[in-house]
């Protein structure tokens, strides 16, 4: 093993840090967006541009530049989508858990809206991630689905959060909905650590988390790149969904108890003039 300064892929070694620089840039843009309202005209477009731009170059890195895997060949390349997607789903649902706890301590429409946004985005990312994993499992395990702790806990998580979103649709009173979905978000949050640690706790067929020292540097670069791309996308999606949820909350709360009577129509019996 030669010293890393002497290896031919010095560029790769340096490229390891490029995604981290991008991540810092994404987070800085988002913080600027939140804290400096006048900058919102361009920060938002820049964030969206970074997310889209990173996804435009990601296929080249993932499909061509990174080397094939020792045992799986090219099939493994789906992990560049599958892993970041499910990690982002778990992050989003962890934020949902945090928002649920925070709401029960202090009522606020913002935490409730953020909980709704994170649950939806987490469910979307998780469902797509599981589908991709299933596509990978067919050539690798020779089955689309198998009864394994990791797979069961992932499926359970999806069903629980589908139920969570159903509950939100079925309760009209915004305050009751917020409290009940916070309670449910806490109960549902139990599954997130179970999902993450299932490969370590039980003998699972699913791979355990690898670390950068055991895989090719180019794989690390591409995986990190994909992480940051998905992080940018997740921020964009959650934030947009949060704004939409806030607008819905404002409309619900502002709704008067009864609509005012229309002008020019005959009044119903017993309906006096409004003050």
């Amino acid at each position: 093993m030669r010293h890393w300064l002497l290896t031919y892929d010095l560029g790769t070694r340096l490229a390891l840090y490029a995604p981290l620089v991008m991540l810092v840039f994404v987070l800085w843009l988002f913080l600027t967006h939140l804290t400096d309202p006048p900058s919102r005209k361009w920060t938002w477009k820049a964030l969206l541009g970074i997310a889209v731009g990173m996804f435009l170059v990601q296929p080249y890195f993932a499909l061509s530049w990174s080397p094939p895997e020792k045992y799986m060949g090219d099939v493994y390349r789906i992990l560049y989508m599958h892993v970041p997607q499910l990690i982002m789903a778990m992050l989003a649902l962890t934020i949902n858990f945090g928002c649920s706890v925070a709401y029960l301590f202090k009522k606020s429409w913002a935490t409730d809206s953020l909980a709704e946004a994170t649950a939806e985005v987490g469910l979307y990312l998780g469902a797509v991630g599981i589908t991709l994993g299933s596509l990978w499992a067919k050539p690798t395990w020779n089955t689309w689905w198998t009864w394994d702790p990791r797979l069961i806990s992932a499926a359970v998580m999806m069903v629980i959060y589908a139920g969570y979103l159903t509950l939100r649709r079925f309760v009209e009173d915004p305050e009751k909905r917020a409290t009940w979905s916070a309670v449910m978000g806490i109960i549902a949050g139990v599954d997130i650590p179970v999902l993450y640690f299932s490969v370590k706790w039980w003998r699972s067929i699913h791979q355990v988390q690898s670390n950068p020292s055991t895989v090719d540097d180019r794989m690390v670069v591409v995986l990190r790149w994909s992480y940051v791309a998905f992080a940018a996308l997740t921020i964009v999606l959650i934030y947009q969904r949060f704004l939409a949820a806030q607008a819905t909350r404002n409309r619900e709360v502002a709704l008067p108890e009864a609509l005012p009577p229309d002008e020019g129509l005959p009044k119903a019996a017993g309906q006096g003039a409004l003050p």
């Binding site: 069903v159 629980i160 139920g163 159903t166 509950l167 079925f170 009940w180 449910m184 179970v194």
Partner: peptide, 22 residues
């Protein structure tokens, strides 16, 4: 929760069954 919500007969199993799996 379900007893106070709309469509409680649908909601209860939908919410309950997934958390009961373990």
């Amino acid at each position: 929760i379900a007893s106070n919500a709309r469509a409680r007969d649908v909601l209860l199993p939908l919410l309950l069954f997934p958390v009961l799996i373990p």
